[in-house]
Design a protein around this nucleic acid. Structure first.
Lengths: 164, 164, 164, 164
DNA sequence: TTTT
DNA sequence: TTTT
């Protein structure tokens, strides 16, 4: 269908370390379990209530998968953007099952680490520095820069790589 | 959890007329089935391929539910914004099932009709006029107006209702 | 125009403490200066480059304004959602000027604090606890709950307030 | 800054045909003027009021620029996604001016035509067919497909190009 | 003016 | 399973 949009935006925390699998190509595919929650005051009881939603996230995007593998850990807070996808599978009894996931495809999606650092677990891996990543870093070209182009004049420098 | 975001944005078409149920309060709850699709060229075969994703949408937001009930029909193109929610249920065999839906809660979410008209099915109801709705219309207050407030001066008119 | 959407989503850091003004009604209106930046590697020089964009944010939404006033400080990282708006004004020389802002209207927009705490400046105000806020908290009603409604059965509890 | 997001989502209509300029490279850069509007009922007068916001959009993304040039016309309804950017320039009197634009960079942003057709102006070009475009079409690789992978088994076909 |  |  022309003219359709399928976008999910999450800010949440990882419930576990990333689960990394390898494609036959050697490319990593990373599965994340991400929690979002909201709290509100119950009208009747006046009590504070909370609801947590768990999201299954699958990262096929190579760059983002590598970053997720390297820098994300249980508890990390992330911003991510992907598309909804439901896949059908059969359990061991041959029962049909459906799983809905947020998918970050190749060349699509976005992932941002929102922790200043991610070493809160005291992880032995030196890593966990704050990293900002997006699916386009490294795909060459692209820039707009040019803070300064004149009025009617049209001149923005287009010489560098990936402005943002 | 403080600081979380759970947002889905879809632009797609209704696969069927809205399914309307009534709460005991009489408020409508509307279920929509929304298709998004994408097409791409297969690398190997060079063929054009298409993939359609179907989304279950549940509208608890009263205003949006009423609009959906009144104006949406099979085939209508909509913009909508909601939150992901997975609920567990048992089928007739007592098997656990999970369904993930995009939920438009009370006072949350957004719904926009993107068709100039919605009578493509030749519906008998004269309706289907283009309607723009959002979850806040009618909740009083709100304005920004003031196309014109001066430099350091701070004066925006705040007298009308719901600016957008 | 029916069927339009005007939405800005930012995750960035405050360049200064919130600037609070009072409406004649006593309601606060909060102005924020928010920085987003991106970095990339220059294709030619191979150098790392960075570009920072500054955004003017105006919060008319009462609840969010109060939270911003109370909890946000210079350096805080926030998620926010608003609408683009350009207003015209005259400087002291009578020159026309235009300013584009991200506006969080009454009953619209969203603001989330993304810092675990916001006391990095050692602020004297005890505040700065992590707070999660949204424009709808407190506007009564709303819930979907119901983790558990059965197969064809339609029964979700609708008794509490604001589920998320 | 690591961990920042700068995203604008618009659904609106073109106020004029696309304005196309060429870079020295021959690549098109397309400027669009996009209107979004909202209407609400004035609290005091009870009158219906409307506010239209005009957005300047600049498309540096080659693919999207080509599509915009070829298919978009005055009045077309579009979905687009870009980043906010403010640039400074001097008018003929040497006065500093600032212009805020929504920028679709190379390899970033999204553009979707939302009209079934775009010939409402009676344009002479037969064109205006519905087109769905995104910034990644054609950048090779990428797919998730696999409607069907089994339970614990991990096997999705990764052979085609760009699933969405 | 922020942040990394 | 996260986070506050």
């Amino acid at each position: 269908m022309a003219g359709s949009v399928n976008k999910v935006i999450l800010v949440g925390n990882l419930g576990a370390d990333p689960d990394v699998k390898r494609m036959s190509s050697g490319d990593p595919v990373v599965n994340l379990s991400v929690a979002t929650s909201e709290s509100w005051r119950d009208k009747a009881s006046g009590e504070r209530r909370e609801r947590t939603e768990w999201h299954r996230v699958v990262i096929f995007n190579d760059q983002l998968a590598k970053v997720a593998e390297q820098y994300l850990k249980k508890g990390a807070k992330v911003y991510l953007e992907g598309a909804l996808q439901t896949r059908k599978w059969q359990d061991q009894n041959g029962q049909d099952k459906y799983t809905t996931e947020i998918v970050l495809q190749r060349y699509r999606g976005e992932l941002q680490m929102l922790d200043g650092r991610n070493d809160r677990e005291g992880g032995y891996q030196g890593g966990g520095q704050q990293r900002s990543v997006s699916n386009d870093s490294g795909y060459g070209g692209g820039n707009q820069g040019g803070q300064s182009s004149g009025g009617g004049d049209f001149s923005r420098d287009m010489d560098d790589e990936i402005p943002f």
